[in-house]
Design a protein around this nucleic acid. Structure first.
Length: 435
DNA sequence: CATCATGATTATCG
DNA sequence: CGATAATCATGATG
């Protein structure tokens, strides 16, 4: 054992000389005989060389034993720290500059976007309402194309999110595994070569950076996928599909039965949206389009107006049947129910006049609550129809827009008269129609 | 393929 | 922010 230690010391000395740090480290000479002649030195060198040459002949156990001896040598920690220091000095100067890695703005951008798209962050379980709507639509037999598209979009988004999360997890796990593996390896190697804890730390940092760059790629491609999906969805939306017959029916019904004030409230819109299995904004679109197009060319809508007026009137009649039927069913004297506003058509004032003449009544600006008035409209139409008015009159016939004012816009009944109840209040209608 | 119907988008306004 | 008006783009129709 003594022999071994001696050899190790010699080797250590050699390696140190190689590093030219002799000045800083005063290692005791291998053998005690300092000022001896060259003979003893030669002897030593020969001895060492011999040892080295025969080192391959030694058994593995022997080598392990020597290694152990080396590890346990009292000078080992000092040597180790010195070597680490040197490494530190030579290595750090090279790569010290590129260490700084401030939060990448692009990465932040990606993160924010993923968060905004609902890919990252908590599961957004808001699908229940839409799902229910879609289910209802399917049940009611509606086409519900938009709902389907919407849920399709959500499903795809969910898919993307799942992939993203699993990938992210995978990366994280791999990163951790790799980090611990490298750390163990380095720790292991630190027994045979100078590796300071700082170096390990730095290595871990490098690994993390590598992995986070991979993560950024993942995030980027996820973002791209979402963007593609989104654009496709928007395209799909742009590729309009006509609403189902049923939906237009419902919308028209509402429109013509509220012709005097075709501005559904938010709740009404929701209701309609649910009934038609379309979105609220689609309802808004529809009403926007309908209003403008109706106003632009009322003549074109007469038929439709009559149709739906009759339809809703039939419904209303069920509710308010008796009173109306008794007094008015057969009389074409349509009470002019009082427009809540006058209607100035851009190009069809004649229609207004014709309406007046047809109704055999003069126009009066009596103000009636809009809702009541819509009922009146309805009733008036059914009356007109039952009275035998038809399209033969050349299009510019009976359904005149009451709610339109002189500026070409619909107006609420300016001062909602005492009758505000939306539920048609048969009495008021009756009184109104009874002329 | 021309034309109209119609849902969606955009610009603008109050 | 919602309404309007104009416009786009596609679907339906003949």
């Amino acid at each position: 054992m003594d022999d071994q230690a001696r050899i190790m010391q010699s080797i250590g000395g050699v390696s140190l000389t190689g590093h030219s740090v002799q000045g800083s480290m005063t290692l005791p000479p291998p053998h005690g005989h300092d000022g001896t002649d060259g003979d003893g030195r030669k002897q030593d060198i020969g001895d060492i060389l011999h040892q080295i040459m025969t080192i391959t002949d030694q058994s593995l156990d022997e080598a392990q034993a020597k290694k152990h001896g080396l590890n346990c040598h009292r000078m080992k920690p000092a040597l180790f720290s010195v070597l680490c220091e040197i490494k530190e000095k030579t290595g750090l100067s090279i790569r010290g500059a590129q260490e700084e890695d401030p939060p990448d703005p692009q990465l932040m951008r990606l993160d924010n976007m993923l968060l905004a798209e609902g890919v990252a962050g908590p599961e957004k379980g808001g699908g229940s309402g839409g799902g229910a709507a879609a289910a209802a639509a399917a049940a009611s037999g509606g086409a519900a194309d938009n709902s389907i598209e919407h849920s399709d979009y959500r499903a795809k988004l969910t898919q993307i999110r799942q992939i993203y999360h699993t990938e992210l997890e995978k990366y994280e796990q791999a990163c951790n595994e790799f980090t611990t593996h490298v750390m163990n390896l380095l720790r292991e190697q630190s027994r045979t070569r100078p590796i300071s804890p700082k170096e390990i730390e730095r290595m871990v940092g490098i690994i993390h950076r590598k992995f986070s760059s991979i993560q950024m790629q993942l995030k980027q491609s996820t973002c791209e996928a979402v963007m593609i999906l989104r654009s496709r969805f928007l395209d799909a939306r742009r590729k309009r599909r006509n609403f189902s017959k049923q939906a237009t029916e419902i919308l028209n019904e509402y429109f013509y039965s509220h012709l005097s004030n075709p501005y559904p409230s938010e709740e009404a819109k929701e209701e309609l949206a649910k009934k038609c299995s379309i979105t609220v904004s689609q309802v808004s679109n529809w009403f926007g389009n309908k209003r403008i197009r109706y106003k632009k060319n009322i003549g074109k809508f007469q038929e439709e107006a009559n149709l739906y007026a009759a339809k809703t009137a039939v419904n209303a009649a069920h509710a308010a049947a008796a009173a109306v039927q008794n007094s008015q069913a057969n009389s074409p004297t349509t009470p002019n129910s009082g427009s809540s506003g006058s209607f100035n058509l851009p190009n069809s004032g004649d229609m207004f006049l014709s309406m007046q003449s047809l109704n055999g009544d003069s126009y009066q600006g009596a103000q009636v609550g809009a809702n009541v008035q819509s009922q009146v409209d309805t009733l008036r139409h059914v009356i007109s129809q039952t009275a035998g008015y038809n399209d033969a009159l050349g299009g510019n016939t009976m359904y005149s827009p009451h709610g339109l004012n002189a500026n070409g816009g619909w107006q609420d009944a300016t001062t909602p008269s005492s009758v505000i109840s939306p539920t048609e209040g048969p009495g008021s209608v009756h009184s109104d129609t009874s002329n």
